[in-house]
Design a protein around this nucleic acid. Structure first.
Length: 277
DNA sequence: ACGAGAACCTGTTTGC
DNA sequence: TGCAAACAGGTTCTCG
């Protein structure tokens, strides 16, 4: 499901329910997701208080009062749902982890494709954890600049679209927002990353920040699975200019081109061959 | 070392 | 209508 805006929407929705709450009980309903749950996972969470909920790229990180950090990734289809005290929750086949909080609220991690994960690290080890160590700053991070973007793309003999999906170059960008940002910046997704000069890099950095910020403001995009923690849908899918719009006229002012779908590294790319160079 | 493609898993949509 | 293939928001492993 989720790219940066959807994960940020989940974080904002979950934060009021989780922060300051003690985890009273943990139900883990299968041995693994994308990776196995760590040894003693439920026991290590039980009794801990959540002191904060952060996001790094597409990862949700819950800081616990004993210095542990709960790492969550939603994969393609992961969701976090909140069941208020007293609600009649019967976990379904795809509800893998249920966190019972001290006020009776339950937070359910549900993921039918199981590309998501939950694991634990500590605040001291977070920067060298294998899942997090090589994550680049995301476009909303102060460390992300046109120069840092250009440095990340420099020397890469791969299409810029593929480079944007590489989390070691830029954090948080996925297939939808890569397509949307490249269109907004007027850059062909097929252009080699190494050929992005200072001008295009500045336009692309700006487009990435802008499209992600607007998507967050809209509560993310709801295609199939994504919902806010409290159940509402995000609305940014109505603002896509190229994603999923093959055959439609290019929405760029005065362009007159038609949106096409191509496949790059096995994934759909949507572009206008006329205004994206 | 880097990049393309396959693999992971389930559900839904598309096409014959 | 029915079945099979294609496709889906991500990441990681293998192979060339």
């Amino acid at each position: 499901m989720p790219e940066l805006p959807e994960v940020e929407t989940v974080r904002r929705g979950l934060r009021p329910f989780l922060e300051g709450r003690r985890i009273a009980g943990v139900e883990v309903r299968r041995p693994d997701l994308r990776i196995p749950f760590p040894e003693g996972f439920a026991e290590r969470l039980a009794g801990r208080t959540v002191s904060g909920l952060r996001r790094r790229a597409k990862y949700l990180l819950a800081d616990l009062d004993d210095g542990q950090v709960l790492i969550c990734h939603l994969g393609m289809s992961g969701r976090m749902l909140v069941a208020r005290r007293g609600s009649n929750l019967v976990p379904g086949t795809h509800d893998h982890v249920v966190l019972g909080l001290d006020d009776g609220t339950r937070v359910v991690f549900s993921d039918h494709r199981r590309f998501g994960l939950m694991t634990l690290t500590t605040a001291a080890d977070e920067h060298r954890h294998p899942l997090l160590a090589r994550l680049a700053p995301d476009p909303l991070d102060a460390a992300f600049t046109p120069a840092s973007l250009r440095a990340g793309l420099a020397g890469r003999r791969t299409p810029v679209k593929a480079a944007l999906l590489n989390q070691a170059i830029i954090g948080g960008v996925g297939n939808i927002y890569a397509c949307e940002a490249l269109h907004a910046a007027g850059i062909s997704p097929r252009r080699l990353a190494a050929s992005i000069g200072p001008g295009r890099s500045a336009a692309l950095a700006c487009a990435l920040r802008e499209v992600l910020a607007r998507a967050i403001a809209a509560g993310g995009s709801s295609l199939k699975d994504h919902r806010r923690a409290t159940g509402e849908f995000g609305t940014f899918q109505h603002e896509f200019r190229v994603y999923g719009r093959a055959g439609s006229p290019c929405p760029a002012a005065g362009c007159g081109g038609v949106i096409r779908r191509i496949v790059q590294s096995g994934r759909s790319t949507f572009l206008c061959g006329r205004c994206q160079r």
